[in-house]
Computed example of a mutant assay.
Amino acid sequence: MPSVTIHTPQNVEIDYETARLGSRIGAWFIDAIVLLLSYLCCLYAVEQLGAGLNDDVALRLGPVFWVVLYFFTAEWLWRGHTVGKRLLNLRVIRLDGEDPTPADFLLRAVFLLPDVLFTAGTLAVLFITTGQRGQRLGDLVARTVVIQTDPPAGVTLVDLLKIRHRDHHPVRYPAVQRLSEADMLTVQQCLLRYRRYPNRAHREALALARARLLEVLALDAAAVEPEAEAFLETLLLDYIVLTR
């Protein structure tokens, strides 16, 4: 599976699997259904309000504007996800490790016009299949890449119960309930990547995750496991026991 190495601002290298072409096409079709239904609902609402709407605008320019608005808004508010991307475990990230900005998402949305709408998707497929990082034209301009966020081998959060039976696991960090399942899946992926590729970069990624979680959960570093892997595993088990 093709991968991309992201250099974070902390000079840590993290490897991600780039999104598969089939997954990206599937996400696009899901989003297209959402776009169609939402646009029809919008037209109906405008009609019910009695607002006049030119047919040419509604049938030609309206859908183009709606596509740009949908992808920009969804990826911006959902941190690199759309409905289709979330369902198929895809996410947009920046190549420099920083969070994508609204301008990045707007560029990606605007370049959907030549990438997909005006070329029936052929330009996007051409760039994705021939480029080293699987980027379409909009990704190249915005310096972004679409990655797979699902864990290797289809492992899910519940699979971590196999590490140790939860009935015998005393909760150490109840504050973990403040985190979302998406947060814990990110932690899980850090662990899985380290166990799959136990190199220095992924060890440093675990250490950064530990430091960040200590800050978010207001925990004393001296009172938790010194090993990042053990600490993150305990957090995951605590989360499962408290939320399942």
Score class of each variant (00 low, 15 high):
36 L>F: 10
36 L>W: 12
37 L>S: 14
37 L>I: 12
38 S>W: 07
41 C>E: 11
42 C>H: 09
42 C>M: 09
42 C>T: 15
42 C>V: 12
43 L>I: 06
43 L>E: 05
43 L>R: 02
43 L>G: 01
44 Y>D: 12
45 A>Q: 11
45 A>H: 03
45 A>S: 04
46 V>A: 12
46 V>R: 01
46 V>W: 05
47 E>N: 03
48 Q>F: 06
48 Q>D: 08
49 L>H: 08
50 G>H: 03
50 G>E: 06
52 G>N: 12
53 L>C: 07
53 L>F: 04
53 L>M: 13
53 L>V: 15
53 L>P: 02
54 N>D: 14
54 N>Y: 06
55 D>L: 11
56 D>I: 06
57 V>T: 13
58 A>D: 01
58 A>R: 00
58 A>F: 00
58 A>Q: 00
59 L>Y: 13
59 L>P: 00
59 L>W: 07
60 R>E: 01
60 R>Y: 07
60 R>D: 01
60 R>S: 02
60 R>Q: 04
61 L>E: 07
61 L>S: 08
61 L>G: 10
62 G>F: 00
62 G>D: 01
63 P>R: 01
63 P>E: 01
63 P>C: 03
64 V>C: 02
65 F>T: 06
65 F>I: 14
65 F>K: 05
66 W>A: 02
66 W>N: 04
